[in-house]
Computed example of a mutant assay.
Amino acid sequence: MADDISSLPHDELSRRGLLFVLSSPSGAGKSTLARMLLEADEQIAMSVSVTTRPQRPGEDHGKDYYFVSGDEFEEMVADNAFLEYATVFGNRYATPAAPVQKNLEEGQDVLFDIDWQGTQQLYQRAGEDVVRIFILPPSLAELRERLEARATDSNEIIDSRMQRATSEISHWDGYDYVLINDDLDACFAKVKQILATERMRRSRQTGLIGFVRDLVAQER
């Protein structure tokens, strides 16, 4: 058995998963970066949130969101079933604890696209497993241009998002890493580098104890 374990490449040793958080003001790029990461890395999966928002055409329950009523949401809050929850534009969103815990134990990383409030709650509940990245726009003028380029929101909504952005940016120092997204590909490369580094932390390498024990035993 010692030979079997010691012959494994280091990156194939068992490890605990991590909770990988991307936060940014609307328009700064976190959703695009999250999509790119999911497409490039099979070891990370998007967290599926619970929401009271009405289900939209083309959305699947359990894949895009877990759609619940307001009463069901409150029951889950009372049962301590969430790692974090918040109200956004009148609808409630939350991260269910059970599937996330299962992923962590199986060495599956979980990706979160959440705001600073959700990040704070998540860190309070699962701090040692959480890696927090905040994405900054190169400037507020650039951020507004990106929001306007979407051509999906009225000027009133864009103004509201800009006001919210200022508030969100003020919490940048509550994150482990802060990146400026002035070049999407360069920013994505940094996100991947952070993920690779965090996966290698000794505290997450659950297979190292057995590996080292058997490695030393070979000399006895």
Rank of each mutant, 00 (worst) to 15 (best):
G107T: 15
T95G: 00
D153K: 03
F134E: 00
G207D: 00
P9K: 02
A2E: 10
G58K: 04
D11M: 07
S69Y: 01
R204M: 08
I169W: 03
L83M: 15
L195I: 05
L38M: 07
H10C: 12
A81Q: 00
E84I: 01
R15H: 13
E72S: 14
F67G: 01
A189G: 07
L111P: 07
G70M: 05
L195N: 01
N181V: 10
E219V: 13
G174T: 07
D3K: 10
A141D: 15
P138S: 11
Q205K: 09
V178A: 15
Q163P: 10
T52C: 03
D159N: 06
T197G: 10
T152H: 10
G29Y: 01
A165R: 00
M76S: 11
G62W: 07
M1F: 12
K190G: 08
P96D: 08
V216F: 07
P96W: 13
G62N: 14
L147R: 03
R204I: 05
G207N: 00
F89T: 08
S26F: 00
F20E: 05
Y66Q: 11
P25H: 12
L208Q: 00
F89H: 09
S6L: 09
G27N: 02
V77I: 09
I194W: 00
M36Y: 08
D41C: 04
D109C: 04
A81F: 15
L104V: 03
S154W: 01
D4W: 06
A196Q: 06
G17Y: 02
T152D: 12
T197R: 14
V48M: 13
L122D: 04
T32N: 04
